[in-house]
Each structure stands twice: as C-alpha cells, then as structure tokens.
C-alpha cells in the first residue's frame, strides 16, 4: 500500500525554521550594532556616560562643551535626568564625588551662565604639543616638546586622589539669623539652605553635611534643585529633632537647628514651618 502524503512536510519544516529563526534574531542572537551614537546607549551606559561628562566638566570647567556632550544623549530634559541620577546615587550611598559632579553638571545645564573653577591638574603639562602625523603602521604618538626649561617630561608619579573642589575660597559662614517660614504654612517642614559665594552668586555642588544629636550623618549637595537656585539644597525636618549642619569641607558647624513651631493647625496639633539659612563666603 503506497502512502500519498505530498510535500506538506517541507512547508511545515520551513515554517517551523522561520519561526525559530525570527525568535532567535529577536532574543538570543540580536543584531550587534556598531558605530552608534550616544542616544542609543542602554540606561546603564547612559548613566556612565553622564558621570564621565560631569567629571570632565569638573576637570575643564567648560559648560558649553558639557552641555553639548550631554545633548548627544537626546534627552528631553537633560537637567532633570542628571538631577535624578545624582539624587539616586546619594540615596544609594553611591560615589559621593560623582554625585557632586552630577549636581554641578545639572546646574551648568540649567544655568548656562554658570562658571566654575576647574579642578587643578596634577599632571604637569608641556609648553607646546606638536601632533605627529599618524604612522603608516597605524600606531600613533603625539610628540611632546618640552618647555623652555628643558625639564624632563611628565612622569606619572602616584599622587593622592584630588577631592573635587569646584569652588575654592574661604569657609562658608551663616549669614544673619535663620529665617522662619510660617506664612504660608508649608506642606512639609524643610530646612532650606542657600549657599552664596563672596560675590553673592549661588554656588552649586557644595557639600552639606547634616547630623542629628541622636546620631547619624547625611550628606547632600547644593544644585539638585536648579529651578529654585543653583545654590539651593533642602532637607526634610523631623519634628522635635535638633540638627547640626556644616557647609563645605571646612565650614564651621551650625548647631541647634530645628523645625520652627508655627502655632497649631486646624486639628489643634502643632504645625511646623520651614527654616531658611543662607551661607556665604566672607
């Protein structure tokens, strides 16, 4: 008895293979892209790129270039994204220096007129550089012409890691007395900090250290709310807690800060206002 089943099995095999091929191309064997631009990076790679842009900004102080680099990521609101990343890093107790760099970058994006003092270079730079023509072998090297003194070129002697100090100068001190904000009564009780330099300009990226008498120290930076001011930072007051804050690396601690009592609310419970403290460089 001859069985006549035709060639449908070939079509079945083809369809099965096609489906497997499509699934593999979408999952296990996706297309490997090359020559992409920064806007196509994954979220993690974008975060790493932003940190790199921020750290380069601290090193060279070129806000225009930092903004141009950040624009390559093609984000709708780059400042907000940078701020969110900085806040997330601080919340996760991530790299403090990177969070500060991001805060400064956010301020630079929000305030194009902002200028910072670049970090000092630990690498001695030669007086003049004559770029070499790329060799035929594909290797390259830039020839460094020594300075007029003829001193030996840069030797990479290990040095201590520099602490980013975008704003150099005298320690910050409290200007006047803290201002109590009761009218209108804020929805949440905040310690509002504004940091200004000697010329009265708001300073982003300044470290604020806050501690409670009961223990525990937290750190945050100015510049994470550029829509308020590049030199602004705030902290949520806990009722009845007493805080000590220190601005910058060498600022004097300001003690005895607590949420101001602004009478009673509609339910006859204590209502707390906010406290605004301004720090300046003498």
């Amino acid at each position: 008895m001859n069985e006549k089943r035709g060639s449908w099995y070939l079509l079945t095999g083809l369809i099965i293979g096609l489906i497997i091929g499509l699934i593999l191309s979408a999952t296990a064997l996706p297309v490997q892209y090359i020559n992409t631009d920064p806007s196509t990076l994954s979220d993690d790679a974008k975060a790493a790129y932003r940190i790199m842009v921020a750290q380069a900004y601290l090193a060279e102080g070129d806000g225009g270039r930092a903004r141009a680099r950040l624009a390559l990521l093609q984000e709708v609101n780059p400042a907000e994204v940078v701020i969110a990343q900085a806040q997330s890093m601080l919340a996760e107790s991530g790299n403090d220096a990177s969070a500060r760099a991001l805060a400064l970058l956010a301020a630079a994006v929000s305030e194009p007129s902002l200028s910072i003092t670049p970090l000092p270079m630990l690498t001695p730079m030669a007086a003049e550089v004559i770029p070499a023509t790329p060799a035929a072998s594909g290797t390259s090297s830039a020839e460094i012409t020594q300075g007029p003194t003829g001193t030996p070129g840069a030797t990479n002697t290990p040095r201590p890691t520099a602490t980013p100090q975008p704003t150099l100068g005298s320690p910050y001190v409290m200007s006047g007395e803290p201002e109590t904000i009761c009218d209108p009564l804020p929805a949440v009780s905040l310690l509002q900090i504004i940091v200004l330099d000697a010329s009265g300009q708001a300073v982003p990226g300044v470290r604020v250290e806050i501690s409670q008498a009961s223990g525990g120290i937290e750190t945050f930076y100015t510049g994470l709310y550029p829509e308020v001011s590049p030199g602004y930072a705030d902290y949520l007051f806990l009722p009845d807690a007493v805080y000590t804050i220190r601005i910058g690396e060498s600022g004097q601690p300001v003690t005895g800060l607590s949420a101001p009592l602004c009478g009673n609310d509609a339910e006859n419970k204590p209502a707390y206002g906010s406290l605004r403290v301004i720090f300046t460089q003498p």
Binding site: L14, G17, L18, G21, L22, S25, L41
Partner: peptide, 28 residues
C-alpha cells in the same frame, strides 16, 4: 526545510525587521 527556514528567519529578523537601536553599549 527547517534549516532553510531558520536561515530565512534570521535574515528577516536581522536585516528586514527594522527595530529602533537601543541598549547599545559604550563599545559600540
């Protein structure tokens, strides 16, 4: 037939179905 279908599926998936590039790495 399965192998031919597989090859065709991969070609279609890689070359013909245009998906927006995302999740690229810094090395790309």
């Amino acid at each position: 037939a399965i192998l031919i279908g597989l090859a065709a599926g991969l070609v279609i998936g890689w070359l013909l179905i245009k998906t927006p590039i995302r999740n690229a790495s810094l090395s790309s």
